[in-house]
Design a binder for these strands. Structure first.
Length: 126
RNA sequence: UAAGUAUUUCGCCUUAUCGCUGUUUUAGUAAUAAAAUGGAGGAAAGUCCGAACACCAUAGUGCAACAUAGUGGUUAAUGGCCACCAGUCGUGAGGCUAGGAAAAGUGCAACAGAAAGUAUGUACAGGUAAUGCUGUAGUGAAACCAGGUAAACUCUAUGUGGUGCAAUGUCAUGUAAACUAAUGCUUGAGCGUGCACGCGCGAUGUUAGAGGGUAGGCAGCUAAAGUGUAUUGGUAACAAUGCACGUAGAUAAAUGAUAAGGGCUUUUUCUUUAUAGAAAGAGUACAGAAUUCGGCUUAUAGAUAUACUUCAUCA
RNA sequence: GGCCUCGUAGUUCAACUGGAUAGAAUAUCAGAUUUCGGCUCUGAGGGUUGGAGGUUCGAACCCUCUCGAGGUCA
């Protein structure tokens, strides 16, 4: 399987996002926060994921877009680890809660940490 | 050389690996896969002007409201741009200017001052038969009969119908033509985005409240008052003609990430008579399309070319 | 993407429509009172009226540009 992140894997439905934020659980690994919810899709993908950077902390569009690109990249390269350990379908939303512009390495390590926490919690519940 | 003034152009590059997205072709029932080929800016920004385009009477009359304001030109259009005149700032190259009307009318002018508009009188001097009759001083931004202020109301001239791609059309999904209050049913409530008239619509109505449902796809959506260049006309803005090019289309929102190398700028150290060379470090801006154009304004590391100026300095 | 509104001491508001040291409360600081602290009383500091430019004799107020904050729409 390849390290892709195309349209069908993006979280787009406004309904599902609302549901995710009201019913979903979260783990945080500074400067990231991962919100997740177990659900089902019509498409054959393991998860749908969205990324978000608040306008409150980053006023310039350039900064927001840059951080989102980095976050998507980190997710793309590290999602295999998650997919190999879950059986059902999930919706994810990754939020950037820091206030400083990050480097790629910081984001990548935080992403790994967040997903490890998520997997630990998930398997514990089972 | 230095310090400036005005304008022009550019605003990082290469390779490897892994990706995102539009279009086309091939394979496939389809999901999708493979290949080829496009994929941010000079300001994409602010939304300050002007248009295109769409809908509402293919847009009407009057009033109100708003905008503009030297003269001429330019343009699809403008409050933009160009030329000239005037004023003003600068030694100068040049910069800036909402730059019509105060004898149509209304208003405003604190403090100071005799007096700020229905005028009136202090000191000194002059003058007269006599008197603010005349000049100067003093107050103030403005003071002998007039002025100032219109980015105060106003007048004049010109212009503007309103709303905006979340317009608008269409397909799909779903619910509540229900509830409460007011008002109205041809003697007409209200709607058509300021008011009146007019025209059109109008009863399973309209307005308000509290709620229920959907919040997805497609079209609009990118070839355009287009860009580059040459010639001609014009002081110029700009126009005409020829040739070449065919130029992003996302929607929780693509155009990227990582690594290596190289540019450019600069600091320190070393070598060298010097030019220069080597090593190490730092920096490499402002900023991200969202219907599309023409302007304006604002942000911007660093580089770049042309023309010009100077009480400068040197030859 | 479009449209609209608002910026005054650290904070909450004034300043009567252009007129002179921009005022009040609260907070802060100092002094008095108290054995000490609080309450109370007295006094002081604190503002280039978000920023820049213009109109005017004079601008918080009028105009232009800009920065920031908030609201609204199918």
């Amino acid at each position: 399987m390849k390290c892709t992140y195309n349209k069908s894997e993006k979280l787009k439905s406004e309904k599902l996002i609302t549901k995710l934020f009201t019913e979903g659980k979260s783990v945080s690994a500074y400067p990231l926060r991962l919100v997740y919810l177990e659900t089902t899709f019509t498409e054959a993908v393991s998860a749908k994921t969205g990324v978000s950077v608040p306008k409150r902390n980053f006023k310039k569009a350039v900064d927001r877009i840059r951080i989102k690109r980095v976050m998507r990249e980190a997710y793309r390269l590290n999602k295999q680890n998650v997919f190999n350990n879950i059986t059902t379908q999930f919706a994810f939303m990754i939020l950037y809660i820091g206030k400083e512009k990050p480097s790629y390495n910081q984001v990548e390590s935080a992403t790994k940490k967040a997903f490890n926490k998520f997997l630990a919690k998930h398997t514990e519940n089972k």
